[in-house]
Design a protein around this nucleic acid. Structure first.
Length: 573
DNA sequence: GCCGTTTTCGGCCCGACTGTTTTCAGTCG
């Protein structure tokens, strides 16, 4: 049983307990362990076998026992029992905005409604407003909420959310007096997908900000409008929240709205132990209510005796403990990247010539690039015939000679074919400086076959890098089944690097695998897979993913200067 | 259900907004 499968069960247990009105802290315990399992780099099964389950934070005797039962029998009697009390439709109903466990429970217990369809019917027939605490407005909101979840994508990619947030910020800055402004939430933490967008503002005219915000050109619906907080739905069914605070509170609010929720809870708990109250307005002494800080975000950490923790780490995945031990990683920065090795040119399906790419990269301050076009089998993407292979190689060498101030490596993105062999023979591969091997076909093979296939590529002495190692496309295609632990072991043994593909709908490896790679001592490379020189900018998505995976400069090969970088690639036979 | 150099029992983060209420519960982040 995988970590995610177990996490799913615990998450459902938390939902059921909530509907049943159980102790909220018990619910929290299950939510916490869900999160832990979702982001755990190692398999929980391995940890269990090593007898170290209880060492994980948030796993005590009771949950450890449940994990054991799940791993050994594939079932959990406690969960099976719980499910008897609560129809599955109620859990679906929880996903409707503004509809929480109390209301769901009330509706179920009084009207016997247990599916969204029944709920919708009852709302239309105005039966809900008869219940205590519910009225016509709630009824209307429930109907809207049902429409809302029908129509929207669960989460949008980081790239899309970033563009939307930046547009809104630019607009607000133009139309109202604003001192400080930032997007917060999972966007600032650079999660690969974003639910809602949160924007924090300080302004001498908060009401004006509310007015402008709720009348943005892209507004489809205003969910709430207050004096300091408003929520809207914009085109594309995305919810955006804005919050205005005083200047003295900006830092505290920035921390608060950046989250994650569980990180915040941990920080506030530390505050309580020190006799402090920490909220979005500032840091206060509990006894006297005296304000001791809040202007800058760093003050929040200072007052609970921690060094600054970058937003990308704030997931309660051990960053607070690491900070307390003084062992926070010095995260890689965008400026650390010295080159991009996975760029497509006109020779395959890219939009630019080698010369254009080299000039654009030099402009960015890169020291080197790799031109890595597709190999022959990938005809849909202009894969290079053997003849073109040599012509292109010749051009790369020529342009490299002509353009000073940047080294152009001759690369390739060679296909790993269905049987694990490569799309070019070694005689061709050895002509190149850098070989990236990737999978572009046969995604549905079973885990064993797929793993063997990649291992075979890793064992090829000419393969330096495995490109987009899990093959996922966010919102389009799941990662293929693969035994990542085996792959990473082999990568380490052979000195093969794994790619963090920064293309916005890939971000592959993901953050959790980045961290696993680091812990296993595997070399990593961040590349854009750019098909146009404008896409060279997308390197930031790779760097952000790396940061979420706790990576430092030294963990990523293309932070090293040209000669050193080249010497760190796999040693050829 | 978890957790502990002030605790093995009694705590467990904090506030805004809405809709239903005449002072607050539910939901959300």
């Amino acid at each position: 049983m995988t970590n995610l499968e177990i996490a799913r069960i615990f998450s459902e247990i938390a939902d059921i307990l909530e509907i049943k009105g159980e102790n909220p802290f018990k619910v929290r315990a299950y939510r916490r362990v869900t999160q832990l399992l979702e982001s755990l780099p190692q398999s929980v099964e391995e940890i269990y076998k090593a007898g170290k389950l209880s060492e994980l934070p948030g796993i005590g005797a009771s949950i450890a026992e449940k994990i054991k039962e799940l791993l050994e029998t594939g079932k959990l009697s406690y969960y099976e029992e719980l499910k008897k009390d609560v129809p599955p439709g109620l859990l679906e109903m929880l996903k409707i905005p503004e509809l929480g466990p109390k209301t769901v429970s009330l509706i179920y217990n009084t009207l016997g409604i247990s599916t969204i369809q029944e709920l919708e019917k009852a709302a239309r027939e105005q039966k809900l407003r008869k219940l205590k605490g519910l009225g016509p407005k709630t009824e209307e909101n429930i109907l809207k909420g049902i429409e809302f979840i029908k129509g929207r994508e669960e989460r949008i990619p980081l790239h899309e959310a970033l563009t939307l947030a930046e547009d809104i910020i630019t607009y607000l800055k133009e139309k109202c007096p604003i001192n400080r402004i930032s997007y917060c939430g999972s966007l600032r933490r650079r999660k690969e997908t974003i639910g809602d967008i949160d924007i924090l503002v300080t302004s001498p005219q908060p009401l004006k900000v509310m007015d402008v915000f709720t009348s943005l050109p892209q507004v489809e619906e205003v969910l709430a409008k207050g004096t300091t907080k408003s929520s809207i739905v914009v085109t594309g069914r995305r919810q955006v929240d804005v919050r205005v605070v005083g200047e003295e509170s900006y830092g505290a609010a920035l921390h608060y709205f950046t989250g994650s929720k569980s990180h915040n809870i941990r920080i506030r708990e530390l505050g309580v132990k020190k006799g402090l109250k920490i909220n979005e307005y500032g840091i206060f002494r509990k006894e006297t209510e005296e304000r001791v800080g809040g202007i800058e975000e760093t003050e929040v950490f200072h007052w609970v005796d921690l060094p600054y923790i970058p937003p990308e780490l704030r997931e309660d995945r051990g960053e607070i403990e690491a900070a307390q031990r003084g062992e926070l990683p010095t995260l890689i920065e965008l400026e650390d990247i010295k080159g991009d090795l996975h760029i497509h040119s006109k020779w395959s399906d890219g939009a630019n010539t080698i010369r254009e790419i080299a000039l654009a990269a030099r402009e960015r301050g890169y020291e080197y690039i790799g031109i890595s076009d597709h190999s022959q089998t990938l005809k849909v993407a202009g894969g290079l015939s053997k003849e073109d292979f040599y012509k292109r190689l010749e051009e790369i060498r020529k342009v490299d000679e002509e353009i000073k101030g940047i080294k152009i490596f001759a690369g390739i993105e060679v296909d790993i074919l269905a049987d694990g062999s490569l799309d070019y023979p070694n005689e061709l591969l050895k002509e190149l400086d850098i070989v990236i091997a990737s999978i572009h076909s046969g995604f549905k093979q079973d885990m064993e076959t797929m793993t063997r296939r990649i291992l075979k590529a890793i064992e090829n002495p000419y393969v330096d890098i495995i490109g987009h190692p899990t093959g996922r496309l966010l919102g389009e295609r799941e990662a293929y089944q693969v035994d990542m632990e085996k792959i990473m072991k082999a990568a380490k043994e052979t000195g093969t690097a794994l790619e963090i593909n920064a293309y916005p709908n890939r971000m592959d490896l993901n953050d959790t695998y980045c961290r696993m790679a680091k812990e296993m001592g595997v070399k990593l490379v961040i590349n854009t897979d750019a098909h146009h020189i404008l896409q060279l900018d997308w390197i930031k998505y790779g760097v952000w993913t790396a940061r979420r995976g706790w990576l430092e400069k030294k963990d990523v090969l293309n932070t090293f200067p040209t000669q050193e970088f080249f010497s760190l690639l796999k040693k050829k036979l």
